[in-house]
Simulated assay, not measured.
Amino acid sequence: MTGKGLFLTFEGIDGSGKSTQARRLAEALTELGHQVILTREPGGSPGAEEIRRLVLEGEPDRWSAETEILLFTAARRDHLERTILPALEAGKIVICDRFADSTRMYQGLSRGDLRQLVDQLHKLMIGREPDITLLIDMDPETGLSRAKGRQGTEERFEDFGPELQRKMRAGFLELAQEFPDRFHVVDGNRDADRVAQDVSDIVLRELRSMP
């Protein structure tokens, strides 16, 4: 499952600002003349968006971690088939707000010792890692405060509280060490413009190094 384009993902705890940075990067690259697809997970295709409502709304204990892994993998497979791979084959830059690393953290690590199961399903059903992953690192308490301040309907994971956010942050930083070739850690505790500049510098440098 290799494409001709560039597959770039944003990761981070809730409220880290990654969605804002993903949008800003998409706008900046489009202005430079690149063909860009901005998408998200869970979601990014009609079927995956239906699953998104199932996993992000409702009570915290609505699903077990094992059931969530299956739901997220199903959504990711549909997203991959219908949105990501066609765009990459067309030579476009795909920017995705969350991907498999979030499942490795939320379900595989932070809600149970299920990382091996996540990786097995990922290898079997997805088989694709991002080319570049930008981790927007954020203080957990600040991030949770921001996330709760949005007052949306998709607050199921925020409702697990600050302890989950702390475990998530530590886990993401460990993932960055596990996959150093694709991960770039960006300090999200700063002004959004400064974060956006760092993100842009990283991605443009990577684009210049591509054959």
Results as ranks from 00 to 15, higher is better:
Met1Ala: 12
Met1Thr: 08
Gly3His: 03
Gly3Thr: 05
Phe7Gly: 01
Phe7Trp: 06
Phe10Gln: 03
Ile13Trp: 04
Asp14Val: 00
Asp14Ala: 00
Gly15Phe: 03
Gly15Gln: 00
Gly15Cys: 02
Ser16Trp: 04
Ser16Cys: 08
Gly17Pro: 05
Gly17His: 05
Ser19Phe: 02
Gln21Arg: 01
Ala22Phe: 11
Ala22Gln: 08
Arg23Gly: 11
Ala28Gln: 11
Leu29Thr: 09
Leu32Asn: 12
Gly33Trp: 12
His34Asp: 09
Gln35Phe: 09
Leu38Gln: 06
Arg40Asn: 07
Arg40Pro: 01
Glu41Phe: 05
Gly44His: 02
Ser45Val: 02
Gly47Gln: 10
Gly47Phe: 15
Ala48Lys: 02
Glu49Gln: 10
Ile51His: 08
Ile51Ser: 02
Arg53Phe: 12
Arg53Ile: 01
Leu54Trp: 15
Leu56Ala: 07
Gly58Val: 02
Glu59Lys: 10
Asp61Glu: 14
Arg62His: 13
Arg62Glu: 15
Ala65Thr: 07
Ile69His: 02
Ile69Phe: 06
Ala74Pro: 00
Ala75Val: 04
Arg76Tyr: 03
Arg76Thr: 01
Arg77Met: 08
Arg77Gln: 14
His79Met: 13
Leu80Phe: 07
Leu80Ala: 01
Glu81His: 07
Ile84Met: 01
Leu85Thr: 05
Leu85Glu: 14
Pro86Leu: 11
Ala87Thr: 00
Ala87Cys: 03
Val94Ser: 04
Ile95Arg: 08
Ile95Glu: 12
Ile95Val: 14
Ile95Trp: 09
Ile95Ala: 10
Arg98Ser: 06
Arg98Asp: 04
Asp101Glu: 06
Thr103Ser: 09
Tyr106Leu: 08
Tyr106Ala: 13
Gln107Phe: 07
Gln107Thr: 08
Gly108Ala: 01
Asp113Asn: 15
Leu114Phe: 14
Leu117Tyr: 12
Leu117Trp: 12
Val118Met: 12
Leu121Asn: 00
His122Met: 01
Ile126Gly: 04
Gly127Gln: 06
Arg128Pro: 00
Glu129Lys: 03
Pro130His: 09
Asp131Tyr: 05
Asp131Glu: 04
Thr133Cys: 04
Ile136Trp: 13
Asp137Gly: 01
Asp137Cys: 03
Met138Ile: 10
Met138His: 08
Thr142Cys: 10
Leu144Gly: 06
Leu144Met: 09
Leu144Asp: 12
Arg146Val: 05
Arg146Gln: 12
Arg146Trp: 14
Lys148Gln: 15
Gly149Met: 06
Arg150Asn: 09
Arg150Phe: 02
Arg150Cys: 04
Thr153Glu: 15
Thr153Leu: 14
Glu154Met: 07
Phe157Arg: 00
Asp159Cys: 10
Glu163Thr: 11
Glu163Cys: 02
Gln165Arg: 05
Arg166Asn: 08
Met168His: 14
Phe172Tyr: 15
Phe172Ser: 13
Ala176Pro: 04
Ala176Ser: 12
Gln177Ile: 02
Gln177Phe: 00
Glu178Phe: 07
Pro180Leu: 02
Arg182Gln: 07
Phe183Pro: 02
Phe183His: 07
His184Met: 01
His184Val: 03
Val185Met: 04
Gly188Cys: 07
Gly188Gln: 03
Ala192Glu: 15
Arg194Met: 13
Arg194Thr: 13
Val195Tyr: 14
Asp198Cys: 03
Val199Ile: 14
Val199Arg: 05
Val199Thr: 03
Asp201Lys: 11
Asp201Trp: 11
Ile202Arg: 09
Leu204His: 08
Arg205Asn: 15
Ser209Tyr: 13
Ser209Leu: 15
Pro211Val: 01
